[in-house]
Design a protein around this nucleic acid. Structure first.
Lengths: 128, 128
DNA sequence: GATATAATTCAATGCACATTGAAGTATCAG
DNA sequence: CTGATACTTCAATGTGCATTGAATTATATC
């Protein structure tokens, strides 16, 4: 069902900050999780392996692993096998991705983007 | 249960970008919802009332209302009753909140915050 | 008064997803 | 080969929350 807005003309749905829209949504969804935010914050302080993050954040290793995977699938972090002991995996922030995240976020939420006038909403009086 | 990390020393959990941590998490959670992102984007283009947003985004009015409430409880938007017809409510972005959001976000995800060295993770060799 | 409109509140449903415990894979040390 | 370690994958559970339809409030018009 479509929801029409009265007798007043309603502007078409013009896509905003076009494609990066979905990208931003996906990134926000990934980051809007307390434990993932804590993991990201920890990784900002330097490379970390699963077990250390688990100890610092008091999380089970499999749970850490789960969140790391989500972060990696979102392209936010990098992994590197330890050259001396292949059991260790060192995780770190993907700086390029972080820069892109910042760019998209700042573009979307740029206060300068705010248009102050009322777009189309108004009762019968000076309706536009 | 606490998850200890081997025999290696593990740094305590020092709170990062201290208090604003939870604030950021809360904001991200609110914004990490496709329909709310679309609503925010619409509001960036100017004041809007419930019914117009519903028509533009093809959402039921009660659903729009629900998301508007979440956004308002997060302090991201403002509401204003129409002076000529009190049935209309005009919603808009809270510019102050948006600026704060940007500030917190940029502080937290600032690429310059990234420390490149490995914090404490490493096998038996030069363990620190 | 009665009817229409803008918006909210309420109750119920369904699903995505974080969390947990157990099992599995790979690597290293003895 | 055996046992330990670092990490992942699998399966099951529980819950938060978006969505929907119906009812409700408040204001305007006739």
């Amino acid at each position: 069902m479509t929801y029409t807005s009265n007798q007043r003309a309603v502007e078409p749905i013009d896509v905003p900050v076009p494609a990066k829209f979905d990208t931003l949504g996906a990134w926000l969804k990934v980051l809007a999780e307390p434990n993932r935010l804590r993991i990201v914050d920890l990784l900002m302080q330097g490379e970390q392996c699963n077990c250390d993050m688990g100890a610092k954040l008091n999380m089970a290793p499999n749970l850490v692993s789960h969140h790391l995977r989500v972060l990696q699938e979102a392209g936010l972090i990098l992994m590197r096998r330890d050259p001396d002991d292949a059991r260790w995996i060192h995780y770190s922030i993907d700086q390029t991705a972080l820069a892109a995240l910042n760019q998209v976020f700042n573009t979307f939420f740029d206060p300068a983007r705010i248009r102050s006038g009322q777009a189309s909403c108004a009762p019968s009086r000076s309706s536009f």
